[in-house]
Amino acid sequence: MQATSKGKMENISQEPKPQDQQNQPSTKIEIEAENLNFFYSQKQALYSINLKVPEKSITAFIGPSGCGKSTFLRTINRMNDIIPGTRVEGKVLLNNQNIYAPTVDVVDLRRRVGMVFQKSTPFPKSIFDNVAYGIKINKLSSSRAQLQQMVEQALEQAALWSEVKDRLNDSALALSGGQQQRLCIARTLAVMPEVILMDEPCSALDPIATEKIEELIVELREKYTVIIVTHNMQQASRVSDYTAFFLLGELIEFDETEKIFTYPKEKKTEDYITGRFG
């Protein structure tokens, strides 16, 4: 949490000098959508989305239900592929490589782009095996000792290790909701992704568990590019560096979070975040 607020303070103090912004070191773009259209059978759900997400940043997608924010999130790891009748036009670039190119291995793409879901989804396995599953599948460890060490590291990163280290062989289903969600994050981290997508990761959690996850998300920015879909605008403003506002399948506005929440350029964004929407 401290990291964000500090970052924001610096930005505010820079604001009176607009020329500063041009001089900022140009950050590397991790994810880029180019004229992305998306269809569920006949129904178009996304309309020519253009978006550039810088690496090692946290981007929040906000917007009312059905605005396409989750759909867009799921195009980034091609999770929509498993829904019959869906169709994509345009490009999504991950490190300048079009993930919809025919040569792309979807299974490997999904390892590189991890995903955490709204409902925590522990596998009906032990805590250890939940984290180990992805490592084993992707053959990331060469020995039992290395596997154990990777599991520990992932749990540590997800701020769960101290809570579960004495009961790694217990069923993951016995954990609390917040712990399960952190387990799911640990499981995602264990396969060493570049990007982490989060689809409303706190919407089923109480405020304390939510705060823990939010702190975790902010820490993840050190190593990963994080995109989080949230219905909670306070959450978006608390954790994210950039915010994208979607409405009816269109990207209305994308900017630094403090700009979106203090002076959005688009009236539709202003109406939505001040609750005039509807």
Partner: peptide
């Protein structure tokens, strides 16, 4: 009320 955007300003 956690004002945002125009309300906040």
């Amino acid at each position: 009320r956690q004002p945002a955007a125009g309300d906040l300003r």
